[in-house]
Simulated assay, not measured.
Amino acid sequence: MDNLALLTIGVTLLCCVLGVCGVHVYSSGKAQRAALVDRLSSTGHITMAGGRRRRFAGFDRRLRGTGLGKKIEVRLSATGLDLTPGEFFVYMVALIAGLWLIAQSLLAAFFGPIFGLVGLWTAFSFLSWQRQKRIEKFINQLPELSRILANATQAGLALRTALSMAAEELEAPAGEELSKVADALAVGHSIDEALGELQDRLPSRELIVLVTTLVLSSRAGGAVVGSLRNLTETLEERKETRREVRTQLSQVNMTAYAVPVMGVGAMLLTDKVLPGAIDRMTSTFMGQAAVVVSLGLYALGLIIIRRMSKIDV
């Protein structure tokens, strides 16, 4: 009996020691995981290159775990903006609330939800505009990128080394994007995968041609220097053509945005001339339907003008 009691006490003490060790390991592992998430998501009290501290760190961490947060993160990664998904979401909500309150105070309560939707559309349109702007800048740098790769390849450097050298010499956004490609190659990704991710982030016909040339040359070899030289000249010609087309269509694009602004301005002017006219108009179903139809026609006109002025070069 004495031996059984001692054995029971010993087993109990051993279980307690193992339980304390397990709790300690679990807590330390959880703390390390939280620190790793903070580093990877660039949140918390980390100071960025520009000296700015991230805001809404806790909310940003929770938002990244949702589907909406992941979609916003993908959109932001293609724009080059120094924003986290949490910051963008908070700013977007503030914009929607501000436009909602302004519309209610200046026009009528009926326009609050409409201007809230306009704020939501504006926020995501801003991301699309920034992404397109970054793509345009990258396309303008493609001739120089192709020239650097041709010179490096002619000097006997491997394609991986040439890409790393181009990432150091070129400015943003090409330098930043090629740095991501070089980092992907450094951790074991193939050239096809790394360049394919670059093509997904910044899709364009010029980049597709360059990526295809580099991938084929890495697979089958061949006169990659001559191909890159010819591609450089072609990209320079396309760059000038795109600039001419953009200049010719600038007036049309300005008209597409000026017409809706004139319509909203005319509505505000009417309310100033006849105080309370918008309130009386939106107090009935027919007036509300007329406003919705007119705004829909303005939006349709904007879309049609943008589609007609969109020329792929």
Rank of each mutant, 00 (worst) to 15 (best):
A152M: 07
T241D: 05
L157A: 14
T212G: 09
D192F: 15
R229S: 03
L228S: 11
T161R: 02
A220T: 13
K133P: 03
G156V: 01
S204G: 02
L231F: 08
H189M: 15
R160H: 03
T212K: 07
A194G: 09
Q248P: 07
I148H: 05
I191C: 11
A167E: 08
V252Q: 15
L163M: 09
L249V: 12
L249W: 05
L210E: 00
A150Q: 09
R238M: 15
L198V: 06
N140T: 07
N140A: 10
R229K: 13
T234A: 12
I148P: 06
R246K: 15
L228H: 10
L210K: 00
S227V: 05
A158C: 05
E236D: 13
I191D: 11
I135C: 03
L195E: 10
S218I: 01
T213K: 00
L207D: 02
I135S: 02
K137D: 09
K133V: 01
E240Y: 14
I208H: 10
A150G: 04
R238T: 11
R147C: 02
T153I: 03
S227M: 10
A223P: 13
E144W: 00
R219Q: 14
S250L: 13
Q248T: 13
S227E: 09
A172Q: 15
L214A: 08
L145T: 08
E240F: 12
R147T: 04
N140D: 12
L185H: 14
L142V: 10
R201I: 06
A162H: 01
R243P: 05
E237A: 14
A155V: 03
L195M: 14
D200C: 02
T213Q: 02
R201M: 07
A172H: 14
E136N: 09
L159W: 05
L198M: 15
L185I: 12
S190T: 15
R243K: 14
E176S: 12
G221W: 07
